[in-house]
Amino acid sequence: MQERIQRVYIPMTETGFYILFCLREEMHGYNIGQKVKKMTGGEVTISPGTMYGTLSKMEKDGLIRFIREEEKRKLYRITDLGREILDIELCRIERLYKNSKGEYKDEK
């Protein structure tokens, strides 16, 4: 994987993470925003300017792929590269979570 992509996307912003996570299924921007709202009990909103910009950038970097258009709405899906990035990020978050629960013990 290109080092640049890894450097830019890891660690991810919350917005970036949820967008990539949602795009394991084919979706368009507004859909993603609605789903993220539900998933987070309304706490995470992704506004249109942020959504449009993040999708454009992820498409250019090859993390997601444009599938088709439906009434001027672009539907995307994650690519293999995107999955690789998402997996790295999921491991990082899991480690963060485990450590936050105090699972790490110093070896004597």
């Binding site: 921007g29 506004s47 249109p48 959504m51 449009y52 454009s56 258009e69 009434e71 001027k72 709405r73």
Partner: peptide, 23 residues
């Protein structure tokens, strides 16, 4: 106000995104 964000040839899709959000 947003500044110069729409990709070339994608103005309609860009504006649709904003419309979906009620703008």
């Amino acid at each position: 106000l947003d500044f110069g964000q729409a990709e070339k040839g994608e103005k309609a899709e860009y504006l649709q995104m904003y419309r979906d959000y009620g703008w």
